[in-house]
Nucleic acid binder design. Sequence first.
DNA 1: AGCCTTTGACCAGCG
DNA 2: TCGCTGGTCAAAGGC
Length: 466
Amino acid sequence: MGGFDDHVGVIGDWGAPSPSPRTFFSNMLEEAGSRLESDKPKDDIANSGFTFPGPDKQFRSENSDQVAKQGGFGEAKVGSARSGFAERLAARTGYSAPRLNTDIVKPSADLAKDSSYLTIPPGLSPTSFLDSPVFLSNSLAQPSPTTGKFPFAPNANGRSSMMFSDSSDRNKDKLFEDFNNTSSFAFKPVPESAPISNQVNPPFMSWQTENRFPSQNIQTSQNGASLLHHSVATEKRAEVNGNVQDHHDEDADQRTSGDNGNNNSDDGYNWRKYGQKQVKGSEYPRSYYKCTHANCPVKKKVERSHEGHITEIIYKGAHNHPKPPPSRRSGLGSSSDIQGGNEWGQDGNLEVTSSTIVHQGQNGTQFESSDAVDGSTTFSNDEEEDDRATHGSVSLGYDGEGDESESKRRKVEAYAAEVSGASRAIREPRVVVQTTSEVDILDDGYRWRKYGQKVVKGNPNPRLLT
DNA sequence: AGCCTTTGACCAGCG
DNA sequence: TCGCTGGTCAAAGGC
C-alpha cells in the first residue's frame, strides 16, 4: 500500500498550495497555447499526447490524424502543459509526480460501437457542460468554463472549437458573455478546428440539469430525455468545474479540505469494503463494497490500478435511502474508490477523468450513459498519453429524436469535441450500475419519464431512454 | 467501542 | 463430478 499512500500524500501536498482552479486552469491554457504556437512537429504533438481509454479507442483511431494535424488543443498541448507543470512542481516542491500506468484502462467496446451515441473526447463529458449554467435552468448556476469561460474561435466547417491557444482573457470573457447571453449558445468557429469525428454526428441533445444533484443526478434534455449520473460522475464533474472556476461545491469542499481525499464522500454514500479479489482477466484486484446504510442492498465493485486510479466501477442495486448528510459520512479509513483525491487526482495534478456509466438491469435492460467527469489532475506517463491521446469518447443515451434542439445539439457536440481535445490526460474508469430491475434503476429518488426504448447494436437488450 | 480494512476460506454458478 | 471463477463471509487487526 506504500504506493497508494504515497499517492495520497502527494494529493495532500497539492491541496493547499494549489492555485485557485481558475488560475490554475488559466495558466495551463496559456502554457498549452504557447506550445501550440511553437514549431513543434506535429508528429511530436501526436506522440506527446496522452491517451484515453475505452470507447475512445474508436475516436482515436479515426481521428488521430486530424488531431495530429490540427495540433489543436490536443494532446500535445495538454501533455506539454502537464509536463511543464510537473516540472515546475518538482522544482518547487521537490516532488516528482508519479507516472501513471495507463495500461489498466480498458476500453468500453460496446460504447464505442454504438454509433448512436455521441462520442465525446476525453476530459469532457456532456455532463460537464451540461451541468454548467449554460444548460442550467436554476439560479444556482455559477460561472464555469462550460458556461463559456473558454474561448471559442470560428471554425471553417462551421463547427465550434475551443481555442485554448488564445489566452486572451478579454476574448475569453467576451466569448463567455456571448455564451451566457444567448439562450442557444453558439460556438464560434475556429479555423484550426479541433477534430470532430464524423461519427460524432449522431444525434446529440442539449441538456439541462434540473438541479444540483447530490449523489445521483438526472440530466434532462429539453425533450425530456434524462440521464442518471452516478455520484461519481457528479462529484467529479464538480471537481472539473472547480478547476476552472471558483466553483463551490459541498462535496468538493469535503474532498479538498476534509482529509486529503481520504474521506468517504466519493458519491455521498458510505461504503464498507467486504472483500477484495484478483479477478481473472483483470489486471488489478477488484474490491467489493457495500453501502453501510441499514438494509441498503447497494454494492459496488471497484477495480483500481496500482497507482490507485479507478479503472472500473460497477454499481449494483439502487439506494433505498437518501444520501447521508456530509456530517454523517464516514471520514477516515474509508475505502471509497471514488473519493476525490486519490482516484481522480487533485487540483495540483492535471488529470482529467471521465467515466462511462452503464446502468444495467439484471433483466438485461441496459441503461447507458456516460460522463466525462473529472477535472482533477494527475500526471501520467508518456505511454499513457500515447494511448489515450485522442481518446475521450463518451456516449449518451440519446437517440436524437430532438428537433428544435438540433442546432444546440451540434453545438454541444462540437463543444464536446473541442473541449475534449483540450483535456488530455484523461482516465476513464468504467462505471456500471446494475439494478435488480428496471424499476430499481428508476427508483432512485428522482422522477423518471421513459421516453423511448431501443435495441442498440451490439446489445441484444433494449436500451431504455429515461 | 465502533467502524473500517485485510485476507484467507467458503460458497455458488457454470462449462 | 470436477475445476474454475466470481462473489461473499468472517476473523483478526488497525484506527
